[in-house]
Design a protein around this nucleic acid. Sequence first.
DNA 1: TTATTTTCGTATCGAACGCTACGAAATAGA
DNA 2: TCTATTTCGTAGCGTTCGATACGAAAATAA
Lengths: 211, 211
Amino acid sequence: MNVSDERRQTAQRKSGRPRSFDREAALEKAMLLFWRHGYETTSISDLTRAMGITAPSLYTAFGDKRRLFLEAAQLYAGEPDAENAAIANAPTAYDAASTILHGAIVTFTGETTPPGCLLASATASGSADAADVRAIVAGYRQQLREQMRARLERDKAAGMLPQSADAAALSGLVLTVMQGLSVLARDGASPEDLSSIVDTALHAWPTAGRC
Amino acid sequence: MNVSDERRQTAQRKSGRPRSFDREAALEKAMLLFWRHGYETTSISDLTRAMGITAPSLYTAFGDKRRLFLEAAQLYAGEPDAENAAIANAPTAYDAASTILHGAIVTFTGETTPPGCLLASATASGSADAADVRAIVAGYRQQLREQMRARLERDKAAGMLPQSADAAALSGLVLTVMQGLSVLARDGASPEDLSSIVDTALHAWPTAGRC
DNA sequence: TTATTTTCGTATCGAACGCTACGAAATAGA
DNA sequence: TCTATTTCGTAGCGTTCGATACGAAAATAA
């Protein structure tokens, strides 16, 4: 919906004074600020300062703070089809989980981006009137877990995993570890530390008859 | 230090108008509010309303918002010695990890308390001037991990774990899963769901020669 | 050119923020 | 009783919050 909103905004423009700033660049600045400081603890004046625009420009271009955050979250999460394809196209569910978790470490400890996960940090706390934002963010997580669960069921049906494998628990474990990694990353853990944790966690993966 | 502060406050009192509210009960109300809404997103007026006292009473009894939160966090975390003893006195490090994680599920999904972990939720986001509060909360986590790591080293030395076991990674996994459980609990996951995730995670535990 | 449309910067709006000055009220000690 | 001490409730401090009203500026369309 945000995408179509922007399309409409950039395609429908036929007259009027042109925008004097790069909308995408400003959105990325906003995303980085939300990533570092969270949703409610990032103020409009913080945003306008970082984005290099005034408050009225922000409201004209992005609606309000809530819609700006949702658009920033979408920019952070990327095209959902991309992640889904990565899970679906991996050789095994194990490879998908390993790729996702090690990729998360890279994202969470990147030197040019804030530590941790935007989706985990931005809405962990929040007042009552931000509950809908929290719910939308939780939906991103739910979507990842469901994709992983479906992939696990597929592997079970294909005999690549024992029938005793618990797809719901394993997909939950991947999500749990990923969110936990965000906390440790924000606490300052090194990528090497986090990588050894992920490798250990993946030992919980069932194998098709090793033991 | 908070404890000694309170001792001094309650023991040194020799004259003056007596306090008209229960300090411990008010602190517990504050803790529950920080637990649910986080540190910065809980306002003084939220606190005074829930605690049933006025702002000047709050400041007289607890100092300021930061010190009130730190005291609430200490009430939440409990006596650190208790957790340390639980880890040290468990039959094995595995039992300690299992007890901690399943106990965390009970805490994170209790029906009379907010979902998730106060320490995970309260400071996941935050502005720059709350960095010291975040650092103190991170210290709670670091302490748990270090206790777990020490216990794992002890078990390795006693031959209860293979020498190949990575104590740092395993202790990190316990902490990672625990923090991840908090996120899923806040998203509304059931204790049964979380329990199956923990049981799966514990499959990553090394054994003294099963394979 | 003239009219229309959109964004621009300036200057705020009312509300909520963390926090406190101040005098009345309630206790203990002299 | 009188004084010292502490907490009480009222009222409000200065600041920041998210969000806008308004007229000038800059583009297109007629």
